[in-house]
Every structure is written in C-alpha cells, then in structure tokens.
Write a protein that binds this DNA or RNA. Structure first.
Lengths: 138, 138
DNA sequence: CAGGATCCAGGGAGATACTG
DNA sequence: CAGTATCTCCCTGGATCCTG
C-alpha cells in the first residue's frame, strides 16, 4: 500500500470508496464504538461493567461493538474460566493509540458545543418560524 | 452546566446521554459529514462539485448533510442569484477548527490501516473459518 | 443547477428467551 | 455472568420524479 502523504489523501482518495478513511469511519461511525473506547480509557472492564458505564447501550450492541473492536485488534478480550464466567475487556496497544485522536475530537466538541448550539438555535429561528409548540429542543 | 475537565468528562459524563460528546458523535457519526468536511478542506465548492468530489453520496444525503452542517454553523451556504442558480458551500471558522481533530483521526486510520486489516484477517481465520473445512486444530 | 418530495428496501437497534 | 439467537420495528439512506 502506497502511503501517500496525509494531505494528498485528504484531497484525493478519501472521497473514493477505496480509501482507508472509509473503513475507519465505518468503525467510529457508530456511536457506541467511541463511547466504549472511552469506557475502557483507563483500564479493563467486565461486560456488565461496560454495560453500566456506557449508558443506553443494549446488550446486543455492546457485544456487537466489542466484537468489532476485537476483530480490529483494538480491544483484547480475556476470559477467566472461573466459576461464574468472567470476561475482561481492555484496549490493546493499537486501541490505546486511538485514544489520542478521539480525545482531540472530544475536546473539540466540548469547546464548540456552545457555538454549535447557538448556531442551531439561530438556524432554526431563522428558517423554521413557529409551526406549533412542536419545537425540537434538546 | 458542570464544565468538568476533559479527563473527568471522559470518564464520567460521556456515557450519559446528556453529554456533549453524544451530539458530536451524532454529527460525525454519519460517514458523509466527515467526507464533506474533507471535500471543503481547501475552499468552497458548489453542490455539483461536492457531489462529484464525494463519491457515492446521493443527492439526498449530500443535501441533508450539508443542511446539518449549516445548521451547526460549520458550513456556510452562499446563494448566487445568477441565471442558473449557483450555490457555494464553504467551511465557517468553526468548521475549519474541526479539520484538526478530523485530520488526526484520518492520520490515525492511515497509520493503522495495516494493523487493523491484519487483525481482522487473523480474527476471521481463528474464529470463523468458512464452512466446508473439517480441520479442527487448536 | 440546486434541491424538494416520495416510495421503498435494508439494516441498525431494542426486547425477549435461552444456553454454558 | 456473559453471551447467542430471533423477531420485529423503525430510521437511514438510495432511487426516482419533479420544481424554481
């Protein structure tokens, strides 16, 4: 694989379906992946623990996402053959490196949340006059 | 609003549905947002231009995503009242700041694509060898 | 050319029941 | 406890047709 420079790729390939970016987008695309990586930020956790940490995730999605991450080599799954089966999940080396860009993204979101919210309100106000009291606010 | 430090947020709030992170994830969650921001990386572009740049995007998704970005104040839409209507899209200041974290993410994907692919193959080979083969080592 | 409106298929995602 | 297996619902997103 020819590793062209990041800049080049940004302007050329990524818009083509064969670009690596697409694959990663598929991964971080689903909301759960990022949240789960975040939940494993500081160490390992058991299945139930993750389920508690990542609020709103269903057992199905948690399993599914963890498997995906495991398949990608970002998460390591360790089964402890004890009486009540105990499974621990932790980020691999590769997974840990993913925290950096993810953190950048999160910091951005924290820093710009206000602007975004304001922009949304302004947009809605300017574009969507009173219909009813059906305003979707968050 | 409890503006805890980034680290704290990472371990606490984000897993709660009320965290700003969720909003951003909803935004970058869809594959098109990132690609479109990338397509506007170096300047403005017209609708058709974007449609060409971002391969695989449907007119509906392009419009939808652009509207979302516009609503969030990340993209500015300029209508030129000429004979054939001409609309130009460009990143706003806020949108430009988003390029940083996005670039980090992309660079990560480029850097780790190989590892991820290898991990996937290894996983698939070890866990789900296609039917037909009767080999059962390990 | 830019985009609104529709119809419709596919898969994401929840709830439930069962296993080891 | 840690999943697997279904069934189903619903939203996402594509394809198509139409308008300013």
């Amino acid at each position: 694989m020819v590793t062209t420079e990041a800049e080049t790729v940004l302007r050329g390939s990524p818009y083509r379906a064969d670009c690596p970016t697409r694959h990663i987008l598929d991964r971080i695309g689903d909301r759960w992946t990022v949240l789960i990586v975040g939940a494993l930020w500081d160490g390992s956790a058991r299945f139930s623990e993750l389920r508690r940490r990542v609020e709103g995730v269903s057992q199905k999605m948690l399993t599914q996402t963890l498997r995906g991450l495991e398949r990608d080599g970002l998460v390591r799954r360790t089964v402890h053959p004890e009486v009540p089966v105990r499974v621990e999940y932790a980020l691999t080396e590769a997974g840990r490196t993913l925290r950096e860009p993810l953190r950048a993204l999160q910091e951005w979101s924290i820093a710009h949340l206000g602007d975004v919210s304001a922009a949304q309100e302004a947009y809605d106000h300017a574009n969507r006059p009173p219909l009813d009291s059906t305003d979707r606010d968050e």
